[in-house]
Write a protein that binds this DNA or RNA. Structure first.
Lengths: 203, 203
DNA sequence: GAGTTTGGCTAATGGGCATAGCTTTATGGC
DNA sequence: GCCATAAAGCTATGCCCATTAGCCAAACTC
């Protein structure tokens, strides 16, 4: 009958621990029962602090996106151009390696219409903003920024996700492949900044 | 008491229908109960044709990867170089748009150790082989092929996944962004073929 | 047509989310 | 200090799903 001293934040923190402890599938496998067990509490007790499993999931996702954003921001501070872009990519990849479960939580797209996802949409936008800022030094024309940001996000995210999912054999060579990808992205963004009318090449 | 006339393949086919009907989350939401309902049969009856939900999932995933591979192969036949690469990317993206659920099924990485995932590993390798073949026309040195393949897979997969997940606002501009990404990949692969010692640039 | 295989079924178990309603702890006013 | 009330637990319950067990009828084989 003693109290566990839980709180909304404590529950979310425990949920993050559960996610972190279960590897890349940790987010998918997140369950109220596991959080309750870790809290030393019966499962229904969690509803005093959290609306539902879906809510808890959302919160973990938001927190994870914030962490990823912060990691990216920290890595790019004081850098510019290619240097910044490489640092961002490395930070992103490191985050995914250090916290696979949280990285997976990062990947769920917020529903554009659901009011419950408002915060998720907001932090996602902030995360994209870091990429925008990172590319600032390339001197891209305004109407090209969006394309460059998307290409960079796609490349990095795709690589990290494939790596996470074990999509690459020959583990030794993965670092070099990442460098090659970054070379492509750096050169590609630079080219996009240089060439006024490139998009939609001969085809 | 009449029989439903099910079979292993019929169950898998129905499962694919269930996945296709539920959008991008169709694969995650795949359930034996839904398949049974669609088959007009009680859920336990499915066990006469399928080992478990996990098995069924695996089979749907394998089938989905095969479809994606076939789509890529069909699109690149008779093309070479940049042309082939663009065609592959378009095919990939089209597939994801036409069958979001199946595309999601494609993304689960087979366990490298689990014998049950042997077929999944095999079809995944075949899928990668299509990319390898597609890049043949670029004249990449052997030891660079793997990097190029990974960059291409990362870029395309990342883009498609972000698009799928609603990661891009401004839907009108997405096609152009995809073209820009393809320009980068084409130029990047070409550069990789041209420059003997590029990877790991100044940093 | 008899026997066997096969493909259905119902019943039951266990785990997960969620709600309802009770009890106890802490807290805050007096 | 004491009592009222709000907050934080609990158990009990219901529903949905996967899975297992065991039964029964249909269909195929000879």
């Amino acid at each position: 009958m003693p109290r566990a001293g839980l709180s909304h934040d404590a529950v979310v923190r425990l949920a993050v621990e559960v996610v972190d402890e279960a590897g890349a599938t940790g987010f998918a496998d997140l369950t109220l029962a596991k959080v309750a067990a870790k809290a030393g509490v019966a499962a229904p007790s969690l509803y005093k602090h959290v609306g539902s499993l879906a809510d808890l999931r959302r919160e973990v996702a938001v927190l994870s996106v914030r962490d990823l954003t912060a990691a990216g921001a920290a890595a790019t501070m004081g850098r510019a151009g290619a240097d910044a872009l490489r640092a961002l990519a490395e930070a992103w990849r490191q985050f995914a390696r250090a916290y696979p479960g949280r990285y997976a939580a990062t990947q769920i797209g917020p529903d554009p219409d659901d009011p419950a996802d408002a915060v998720a949409r907001e932090v996602a936008a902030e995360s994209v903003q870091v990429v925008v800022s990172t590319l600032r030094g390339f001197g891209l024309p305004d109407e090209r920024v969006i394309d460059a940001v998307r290409a960079v996000r796609s490349g990095i995210h795709g690589f990290v996700q494939l790596e996470q999912g074990g999509g690459f054999r020959l583990r030794e060579d993965v670092d070099r492949s990442f460098e090659v990808l970054l070379d492509m992205l750096v050169a590609g963004v630079a080219a996009l900044a240089a060439a006024p009318v490139t998009a939609g090449s001969p085809r």
